[in-house]
Design a protein around this nucleic acid. Structure first.
Lengths: 340, 340
DNA sequence: TAAAAATAGTTAAGCGCTTAACTATTGCGA
DNA sequence: TCGCAATAGTTAAGCGCTTAACTATTTTTA
């Protein structure tokens, strides 16, 4: 490994001058710059980043943190898309990403994660902060490490998907198709921060159409395909008059479709079913799902840009990323619908 | 931030003694250990890992490298599952993962990736090494950085999915169902290393059943859903007698199913269609796909264990991870089949 | 014309940790 | 009982880089 010292000898200047030229710190002549850059090129010099990190106090590494509950993160394509956005911004700024996937126990997040945060390895953190019981960024705040949360924890610097807007769009879509007998497959609010906001978006949109949201029949699932099937079964048995079902995520929508079919309904001809999240399976499902896409890459990009601003001493505003309605073949007007 | 120096002062010993106790290097008394550990706990000491990396020459970070072609990696769940396996082994050994997703241009992999490899930040690399045109690990070999490749490049240390075994299992499954009129949806061999081996596995299994593989009608796709649909259309138009189609991946199988349906075939009753890879959509497709699961988490684990062995000076053997046949509802015996 | 400011390059110290070499003491074996 | 080996702890140097402070020269301003 070639050192800065050897570059300095080759260029006939001090190591401080080499450092100055490489970091573009004033003052040096064009001749000095030429001599240094020639030596760098001839020797194939690449800086030792651990040394640079130690002396400058800056690593140009950010930690990307996805907390693990039930190992779900490694099966969730949302994670990959967040990562895509984070990576794109890191690449632009010459930063590297250190992955951390902490496990929560009764004593808090595991020791390995705690050590990483305090290790001096990362200039800052972007974290998916979505476990209601505990914020994964608390330890970063205690250490005054720059941090941006993705999700609903009360972090000063955060990026969120605008679940109210997403729910508004999906409810509006269903109502504009002419549906009035609408079932809701919901989830217990303690499981996930976004549930309340999705329900609020559905409610406020129904009210704009002068409909009483509380009169819509509801059944409860737990985000899984099976729970969606069970909930759809309940709804269709107790409310056979419904012409549409809004599910709070895609997997429950898939289960609902399977169950509705088993109960003799055809989709979407006499029952419209819509989901939320636009997981990859949604597009290839039969029929392809109408759903809400959260634009995870853009969330990842916005969070990372925000973190760089915090690291550079800025004080950026929180960001809400608007989701996008994706209309596919699982939704259609009801058969006897008077178009409103 | 508390330093080792302050711990030494608190415990009343030298910094070298603190370092010794923390690394369990001989020799120290039980009394000295107690004094040091008390000081560590009272001061909440956490080592600065950049300093440790600089002086010891070891970071306890490995680089996890997924080369980018056409941004496909951020939509491929296989990546997430590899990462799952790598992360599990890193967690066990107290290592951290530095993600790198280099881009290939005509001049080779990008400068950011090259700097990362030479930076002293990573003790070693686990890389998905699957671009036929160029090995992502060449630069690591030049720098004598410990490296393990996942895939078919000729790396000394590598882990591969046993594509021959996977293809053997899927062909055997189709033949044991009684199919003899079998179409193959293939891919040009230059696109991906695994194609030849999958075809070889299919061929050798057919020969074991005394069948001439070259007599099976073939059409070519490019791994995409659309190409699968086109290829299936060709096959069914020129060979309407076929009772099964083997596709070299799941997405082509999905396209083939959609096209076969459009051409009046029911799946699997009068046409069995099978895929390869067990992507998440396979399980929720209609009908759920019979396919081959590559056990990506186990590949990630094996590669990471191998890297730790190389870092510690060992000389491990390459590993082939056996895929698993997943039978679902897209395959069934042919209607007029004499069970062989 | 003299003083102040800017330019250019260097010296010196240090970032926090590791560990080889050294020193002193104790224990073991012949 | 003496010499060698093991134990215990310390000293000293260094890993590769950054940058504040310093020094010398040139340029600008009043």
């Amino acid at each position: 490994m070639t050192t800065l010292q050897r570059v300095a000898e080759r260029a006939g200047v001090s190591t401080a001058t080499v450092s100055k030229v490489l970091s573009n710190t004033p003052y040096f002549t064009e001749e000095t710059r030429r001599k240094v850059m020639e030596a760098v090129e001839e020797l194939g010099y690449v800086p030792n980043l651990a040394a640079r990190a130690l002396s400058s106090g800056r690593t140009h590494i950010i930690a990307v943190v996805f907390p693990q509950i039930f190992d779900a993160i490694f099966t969730d394509p949302f994670m990959l898309h967040l990562l895509e956005g984070v990576e794109a911004e890191c690449h632009k700024q010459g930063y590297n990403m250190l992955m951390s996937t902490p496990r929560l126990s009764s004593q808090g997040f595991d020791a390995h994660y705690q050590q990483l945060i305090q290790s001096g390895y990362a200039d800052g953190i972007v974290a998916l902060d979505n476990i209601p019981a505990r914020s994964v960024l608390q330890i970063a705040h205690e250490r005054e490490l720059p941090a941006v949360g993705i999700g609903y924890h009360d972090n000063k610097y955060h990026v969120r998907s605008d679940d109210i807007s997403g729910a508004t769009q999906i409810m509006q879509h269903v109502l504009e198709l002419g549906h009035r007998q609408i079932g809701i497959i919901s989830v217990a609010e303690e499981l996930n921060f976004s549930v309340r906001r999705r329900l609020n978006g559905l409610r406020s949109t129904a009210e704009k159409f002068n409909m009483d949201f509380n009169a819509f029949p509801q059944a409860e699932g737990d985000f899984s395909i099976n729970s969606g099937a069970r909930a759809a079964g309940e709804l269709l048995n107790t409310h056979p008059e419904i012409t549409a079902v809004i599910c709070l995520n895609d997997r429950m929508a898939m289960g609902a479709i399977q169950q509705a079919r088993a109960l003799g309904r055809s989709i979407p001809e006499n029952l419209t079913i819509v989901g939320y999240d636009d997981i990859p399976s949604a597009a290839v499902f039969a029929p392809p799902l109408t759903t809400i896409n959260q634009q995870a890459p853009e969330i990842g990009r916005a969070a990372t840009r925000m973190l760089f601003e915090v690291i550079d001493g800025g004080n950026p505003h929180p960001v809400n990323v608007p989701p996008v309605l994706i209309v596919r073949q699982s939704s259609a007007p009801p058969l006897e619908s008077p178009r409103a």
